[in-house]
Amino acid sequence: MAVLTTTVPRLETGRGTRSVRRIKDNLTAYAFLAGGLICFGLFSWYPAVRALMLAFQQSNSVDEATWVGLDNFRLLFEDPEFGAAWRNTFAFTALALVIGFAVPFALAVLLNELRHAKTFFRIAVYLPVMIPPVVTALLWKWFYDPGPGLFNEVLRFLHLPTSNWTNSTSTALVSLVLVATWANLGGTVLIYLAALQGIPGELYEAAELDGASLWQRIRHVTIPQTRFVMLMLLLLQIVATMQVFTEPYIMTGGGPEDATITVLYLIYKYAFVYLDYGSACALSAMLLVLLGAFSAVYLRLTREST
């Protein structure tokens, strides 16, 4: 009995010590997380919730707002620029996928096959990413200048017809897609390169022994092995291109004839030109719901396929 009376309190004391230590560790962890959680809440979630509330309010200043229900959404649907902005945004996204999704993959495959000057070409491809977006837009704006612009000077030197580039409704949107593709090419190429270098060399050796050509190796080895990376980059590119703003704002101002006005640029006009924060937030909410629904469906389909 003496042994039992001395053992039980020790067990209880040991359990109590471990519980106190666990609580202290948790409190320490939450204390370190508190700063990040507070910053995330103040600068990310609070603006999002505030913008969602303003979507149902009439406001010419953030401090004075009255509830108007769905009036802001009705106003958007009556605006002729609303339809043009969505059409241009979808067209920009489609063109960016055709040009900006295939080109980085092809460049990554080419760079992966190089045996000399690998570092130089990788730096050259990634260099546009290090240039600020505004500087890139201004640089290409000079390239596209219909008068002394670089591209038209080259065409004149080659005795070829010049183009109006961003001043023509037929070529303005494509011109902006080329700028966005060039500016964001480097990061995508490096991600593809990392995925390509993770493919076991034995697979390529087996394909070569079977007599597979370069295209067959890419089709049956490279693409299946990088499928997950390609699907994730596809999702990220669609979300990013649906929010294009810098190129139309700097280079065309939404013109000519609303040929390059996008949803994000229209949000900017409502907020900072018309000073209608309610309609700007309503359009932002529509874009958020669309991208959120697309992302959820896309991830669901890709999860089922993999």
Rank of each mutant, 00 (worst) to 15 (best):
T171Q: 09
A172V: 11
L173Q: 04
L173R: 03
L173H: 05
V174W: 15
S175G: 08
S175H: 08
L176C: 09
L176G: 04
V177N: 10
V177T: 07
L178T: 02
A180D: 14
A180V: 12
T181E: 13
T181C: 12
W182D: 04
W182P: 00
A183R: 13
L185Q: 10
G186F: 12
T188N: 04
T188H: 03
L190G: 01
L193N: 00
L193H: 00
L193Q: 00
L193I: 10
A194K: 02
A194P: 02
A194Q: 07
A195S: 10
Q197C: 12
G201Y: 06
G201S: 04
E202L: 05
Y204P: 02
Y204A: 01
Y204E: 04
Y204F: 14
Y204L: 03
E205T: 00
A207W: 01
A207H: 01
E208S: 02
L209F: 09
A212R: 02
A212T: 01
L214G: 05
I218R: 00
T222C: 03
I223V: 15
I223G: 07
I223W: 08
Q225E: 06
T226A: 14
M230R: 10
L234A: 06
L234I: 02
L235W: 08
L236C: 05
Q237H: 15
Q237S: 14
I238F: 13
I238Q: 04
V239D: 11
A240D: 10
A240S: 12
A240P: 05
M242C: 06
Q243K: 11
Q243M: 09
Q243T: 03
V244D: 06
P248D: 12
P248H: 09
P248G: 03
Y249F: 15
I250V: 13
I250L: 03
I250S: 10
I250T: 13
M251W: 08
M251E: 10
M251S: 06
T252V: 06
P256K: 09
P256R: 11
P256C: 12
E257W: 11
D258I: 11
D258T: 07
D258V: 10
A259K: 03
T260F: 10
T260C: 07
T260H: 09
I261A: 08
V263T: 05
L264H: 07
Y265N: 01
L266M: 09
I267E: 06
Y268I: 00
Y268S: 00
K269H: 13
K269A: 13
Y270V: 01
Y270P: 01
F272I: 07
F272R: 02
F272Y: 13
F272S: 07
V273N: 09
Y274F: 15
L275W: 15
Y277L: 15
G278D: 07
G278T: 05
S279D: 01
A280P: 03
A280C: 03
A280I: 00
A280R: 04
C281E: 12
A282W: 05
L283R: 00
L283K: 00
L288D: 05
L288G: 08
L291T: 10
L291D: 11
F294C: 04
S295K: 07
A296W: 13
V297Q: 08
Y298N: 02
L301R: 03
T302V: 11
R303G: 08
R303N: 14
R303V: 01
